[in-house]
Design a protein around this nucleic acid. Sequence first.
DNA 1: TATCCCAGTTTTGCATTCAAAATTGGAGCG
DNA 2: CGCTCCAATTTTGAATGCAAAACTGGGATA
Lengths: 221, 221
Amino acid sequence: MLHEEVVGRIRAILLDGEIPPGARIPERELCERLEISRTPLREALKVLAAEGLVQLLPHRGSRAAKLTDKDMRDLFEVCQGLEALAGELACERITDAEIDEIAAAHAAMVLHYRDGDLIQYYRGNRAIHEAIVTAAGNPVLAGLYTSVTARIRRARYVTPMTPQRWALAVKEHDAILNALQRRDGAGLSHILRAHLRHKREEVLQAGFAETEGTDLMLRIA
Amino acid sequence: MLHEEVVGRIRAILLDGEIPPGARIPERELCERLEISRTPLREALKVLAAEGLVQLLPHRGSRAAKLTDKDMRDLFEVCQGLEALAGELACERITDAEIDEIAAAHAAMVLHYRDGDLIQYYRGNRAIHEAIVTAAGNPVLAGLYTSVTARIRRARYVTPMTPQRWALAVKEHDAILNALQRRDGAGLSHILRAHLRHKREEVLQAGFAETEGTDLMLRIA
DNA sequence: TATCCCAGTTTTGCATTCAAAATTGGAGCG
DNA sequence: CGCTCCAATTTTGAATGCAAAACTGGGATA
């Protein structure tokens, strides 16, 4: 198994919440499960610690990182900045074909909204945000985005929404698609910020900071 | 020696250009120099690879990452976004005392400009940019900023400037300080973007992409 | 002479081992 | 009964050892 694969597998375990935030990471056990020895496992843990998904305590092992309200706020703040930038760049660089794909994803997502299927809605939602970032054509940006969103994923794509908020989110997504189609970078950037600000408020209001015992037990692949 | 310290030492070696971009990283040698064995060294290299400073080639060792023109452009683009965000947040959160410190740093930097001391000018310049990011009060943002700027540091703070460009940069810094003092987030954000865009043009024009043989041999601590 | 091939060497990646630090559990004491 | 302290055990962090992959260079061949 390649180094990157080990990192990926552990990252998935953490994002799935299989090892809940704050829990000790059982080295020995993971070694057996991944059929590797401690050396490559520990290499992966250090990488994940640098990413912010794992917390290393000297001589006391590693734990799945636990996000405070402040962490959550900071992450959303940065995420807003990254998506806003991605939106601007995407408008300069996106192809017609890419816009069509996003429009299709948007339409599908709206259907899930009408069906009241939150899981599928979130899945489509995430695909759209990621497509915009991809369309920005900046791998550095995409990398940071991936790492930041990984940390808030469970909160962002799991929080239940009130009908009002959900309706607003869908409306915002209409505007997002519209701005993209008009290639209105400034406009898209602005909408994305507002969209994420609302999402952040939602998440924080729902009290989804990962304090003791919060385990969402959800796997949004 | 602590893990973080090992990472830091190797990072410094790379940023100093002691191991020039593209060069092979001599594992054995570094082990002796840092007086550690291969295990912690390799852990550090994987972390630095995740940061983008090191390139890992399976079964072929690691090299100091080499930046192409595209990489440089992408990094500057992201850096613009991060600083713009930092500027906005800083205006909301910065204290009067912090503004005074930045004003003092600015004044000192202008003196170095008048002296024609580019090294000292760059040092002050960097301190100001970092102070703004710090004032944003967002550790996640600060972390990403550190990692992104590390990768372009040699280009950003080493490129020689024409008198015109230098004068313009100083003028932009006047405007930066002014916006900060007025706590004009939008304005500051705008100026920072322009400032960095100009810097990027300068760097790319100077052909400072790290292709073969480019070794700046400079240490701006 | 240039190219190909293959044994010898080096380097890499990982498993294992070992010392040091932390945790545990229970005996002794208040 | 609860607290403290200390030896036994576990876990961590790092050095070493080992198999496999990649490099090297010298000779055979075209």
